[in-house]
Amino acid sequence: MSKLIIPTPLRKFTNNEGSFNSSGSTVREVIHELVSTHDGLKKHLLDDNGNIRSFVRVYVGEDDIKSLNNDLTPVAQNDIVSIIPAIAGGIA
């Protein structure tokens, strides 16, 4: 099982659990397993097409999946997968 780390603002959807164990073999499978277990997360993590929202970063270990194979990045047993909110904004 891999371990998915849930960021603080999303823990209200996971009964305050900070992590989630998954048997998914890709990032996509891991994220979909998470949102099927905790439905309230769906609109915050996935867009209307079921893809990971552009403002959500996912890391496998210390690597951004954008530098790997995006949501098809393989996830091995004992990998740590982290969801990290992209934080940005400003006047315009």
């Binding site: 603002p9 999303l10 909110p85 904004g89 400003g90």
Partner: peptide, 25 residues
Amino acid sequence: GIYHSHPLHPAWPSVHDREQAMPWF
């Protein structure tokens, strides 16, 4: 949560602020 400043502008969220915001924070 997160703080940031709006220089020379009101302390009111922009479209960009909202698009990228997370719940709970």
